[in-house]
Design a protein around this nucleic acid. Structure first.
Length: 766
DNA sequence: GTGTGATATCTTTTT
DNA sequence: GATATCACAC
């Protein structure tokens, strides 16, 4: 093995080689945090430490994957794949699959995602005859989630006077009851939600000392990434696991703590020393990523926060260019300005699309940007948002898999008992749910017992249909262990009627759904043919099992972000929220939508802590940039369909003017005061004018590209068109002449297609 | 019991 | 502007 330590600076090397005892690494943005983690793992392995004794925890799948690839590239030895590297949730799920029986869960328990939890809580609120205006599902869910991440059980929640008072004061005294019903229902369904994975792991380690001991022995070396984002449950679990040897190394940056809203407690990193008096602390303050300008601008911004560990991030990189501030009158114009700027930079410096990232505060902002990029024919990819696994047709088929694997999975059952329509309607289902509640049984147990089902006064037609359904699911369940994942998945997809249903749907949406199902089946095929993973069990028995459907489902249950691997796309501009950009870096970064009430978000303005979190978020955004950073805001934007006016964000002013591209920087102050004085009517008129101008500009450009008189000449870039089969779309590019003229059209449902205009029979929509 | 239009709510960020 | 739910007709 090469001497990897040579590739580290002095502090990094110390952090990597301090193998024994508690270690905390405070790693500023771009200071080589991931480098320290990966080299530390490599170093541990090079010392001959068994990979099975190493546990590395991250927050996102992306980070886990990144870490794996980087460790693999450092260590030629394939043993590295036996290190337990993964997200908190996936590692704990793995433990619970083995040990969960102690808590009364089978190893095939289902993991409920947010949608499932929401559906369930909604149903419960309704069943309890509560007003969902007083008990908004999201709010109830977040109360429950909050309790769980602080390890407060439903029972403790109801008995806690302080909580009781708080809920009564808020006129929501029933939340404790909802919590306890929700927990019961999950339990009855053999299901855990995201928070349960943490909560139950803690219960397991708390109530079963022998299990705690087992994992303490196993995980002799623990590494935790992004420690500033741990919540109480995660904090306590890692502490327990490390209690024996105290070989725990946490890496983080308090300035980048951006998950307080979901229970992360910044105090965990600030107080780490209290738990481990003989802690060794290393501060990585040298930034290798960004230019002087970017580093100093970011330092200036974060300086406005009160709560932080003092550190001075510095860099010896070049000064770099100042930060341009783009001012747009509308969100669409903002998109154009950004797209133009990217286009120019690409041309001037001969850059790939992948050198660029556009970051925003909310997912909804991506649309105007997307349109502008499409018009400029710049390939992009959106991360987050509606991922593959969240699409309806995919969730439907997955619900079949889930029910087959775990018959008690209520959410899955409700979803598909009548999909495709098989004559089991609302009334029958309601009777089943009521009976299940009364008898404290799962829905499956009700419909699986003919004697019970018979007593429910469901009409005989439906009764027969239910029993056919039960028989079908049972026949699949019987084949889980014998068939490989792909064979069984294909069988279910076709014989359940899902494939037929979608095949018969010839609308563009239907076609695309059918293709998505095919894609899912292909993914399962890949999975089935992949070499089986070496587990602890394999290690003991030497047996490599068939890759079955339930293994596949375990693999994907916790994949939520953009984890589908797009094979064709390689060079694209990245679009994502700042939250999902954490840990990434790009040469050119655009931060858009810097407006009051959007960034900082309107809901963060009430408390200092929330505002500071927004500022840290801005800090994260700034420090993603390597060479060049651009920020932008607009004076008006569409939000929930209405035009609203915006003021520039306070964060813009927090960047010292010496780092901003000044002429634009000064101008915004004027616009701000002007805008306030403008009556909304005149501002609106003004705005219309601007939009018209923009339209004109665009059509001028496209008009200039060759004119001959034929029908195909009517089509121009940017037009909205409709296609008989693909539906509505937008022309993004036109090339060729005369009868060979081709158009690239981006369709809402099926994506980009190249069409020969003389055959396409496109209808112009506007 | 099924399918279709009308309408309310939504937008913070994610495992 | 988009989605999920609801009322209503068949």
């Amino acid at each position: 093995m090469k001497d990897i330590l040579k590739e580290l600076n002095e502090v990094q090397k110390q952090a990597v080689t301090q193998v024994e005892g508690p270690v905390m690494v405070i790693a500023g943005a771009g200071s080589g945090k991931t480098r320290v983690l990966t080299y530390r793992i490599a170093h541990l392995l090079s010392l001959g430490i068994d990979p099975f004794n190493i546990l590395a925890l991250t927050f996102t799948n992306k980070a886990a994957r990144e870490m794996k690839t980087r460790v693999f590239s450092l260590i030629e030895n394939t043993e590295a794949r036996n290190v337990w590297m993964g997200t908190f949730h996936s590692i704990f799920a793995r433990i619970l699959r083995v040990e969960g029986h102690l808590l009364g869960y089978p190893s095939n328990f289902t993991i409920y995602d947010m949608d499932d939890s929401k559906r369930l809580i909604k149903a419960i609120i309704k069943e309890q005859n509560l007003d969902d205006k007083i008990y908004p599902p999201n709010h109830v869910l977040s109360r429950i989630s909050n309790a769980k991440t602080n390890l407060i059980s439903a029972k403790e929640y109801s008995e806690n006077l302080e909580i009781k008072d708080a809920d009564s004061m808020a006129n929501k005294p029933k939340i404790g009851i909802l919590y306890s019903i929700y927990s019961n229902r999950c339990k009855k369904a053999d299901a855990m939600d995201f928070d349960d994975l943490l909560f139950n792991t803690n219960v397991l380690l708390r109530d079963f000392p022998n299990i705690l001991f087992k994992y303490q022995q196993k995980f002799k070396y623990i590494l935790v990434d992004e420690y500033q984002d741990t919540n109480f449950a995660q904090y306590l679990i890692t502490k327990k696991l490390a209690a024996n040897d105290e070989n725990i190394c946490v890496v983080g940056d308090d300035a980048q703590s951006i998950y307080a809203f979901r229970g992360a407690n910044i105090q965990n990193i600030l107080d780490f020393k209290k738990d481990y008096p003989d802690l060794k602390t290393f501060k990585l303050e040298r930034n290798y990523r960004s230019t002087q300008t970017i580093v100093k601008a970011a330092n200036g911004v974060i300086f406005n926060n009160k709560d932080q560990i003092f550190k001075e991030i510095w860099t010896s990189n070049e000064d770099g260019q100042k930060i341009p501030l783009l001012t747009a009158s509308t969100d669409n114009e903002e998109g154009h300005l950004v797209a133009n700027s990217i286009f120019e930079n690409k041309m001037n410096y001969q850059l790939n699309n992948s050198s660029f990232a556009i970051l925003y505060r909310t997912n909804a902002q991506s649309r105007s940007i997307e349109e502008a990029l499409r018009k400029k024919d710049i390939t992009y990819r959106i991360f987050g948002g509606l991922s593959f696994y969240k699409r309806k047709e995919i969730k439907d088929l997955l619900a079949y898999f889930r029910l087959v694997i775990n018959n008690k999975d209520e959410e899955a059952l409700v979803r598909i008992i009548n999909y495709p329509a098989r004559g089991i309607g609302k009334t029958s289902l309601e009777k089943i749910i009521v009976a299940a509640d009364k008898m404290q049984k799962s829905l499956w147990e009700i419909i699986n017992e003919t004697s019970v089902l018979g007593g429910l006064r469901i009409n005989t037609g439906s009764l027969n249909k239910i029993s056919v359904f039960v028989t079908m699911i049972k026949s699949y369940s019987a084949q889980i262990k014998s068939k490989n994942a792909y064979e069984l998945a294909k069988l279910i997809a076709s014989s359940s009627g899902i494939l037929r249903e979608l095949y018969n749907d010839k609308t563009p949406e239907g076609v695309s759904r059918y293709e998505n199902i095919e894609e899912l089946l292909n993914a399962i095929k890949d999975f089935s043919e992949k070499e089986p993973e070496i587990t602890d069990e394999t290690r003991e028995t030497g047996e490599l099992s068939v890759r079955t459907l339930d293994e596949f489902m375990q693999d994907i249950a916790l994949l939520t972000d953009s984890d589908t691997n797009n094979k064709e796309l390689t060079d694209y501009v990245s679009l994502m929220t700042i939250h999902s950009a954490k840990g990434l870096e790009f040469p050119y970064v655009y931060i858009v939508g810097l407006e009051e009430n959007l960034f900082p978000s309107i809901q963060s303005l009430n408390s200092r802590a929330d505002l500071e979190e927004e500022r840290r978020l801005f800090y994260v955004a700034l420090t993603r940039a390597e060479k060049h950073l651009t920020i932008s805001y607009c004076e008006s934007r569409y939000r929930w369909g209405n035009l609203i006016f915006c003021e520039p964000s306070r964060f813009i002013e927090e960047i010292k003017s010496e780092y901003l591209d000044s002429p634009v920087g000064k101008a915004f102050l004027k616009t701000e005061s002007n805008l306030e004085k403008k009556s909304s009517a005149s501002a609106w008129k003004n705005n219309q004018g601007i939009q018209k101008n923009n339209l004109k500009k665009i059509s001028n450009i496209t008009n200039s590209s060759g004119v001959t008189s034929s029908e195909t000449e009517l089509f121009q870039t940017g037009m909205d068109v409709e296609h008989k089969r693909f539906g509505k779309g937008k022309i993004v590019n036109i090339e060729g002449t005369g009868s060979n003229k081709k158009a690239t059209v981006f369709f809402q449902t099926v994506g980009q297609k190249q069409l020969l205009l003389k055959f396409a029979k496109l209808k112009i929509l506007n």
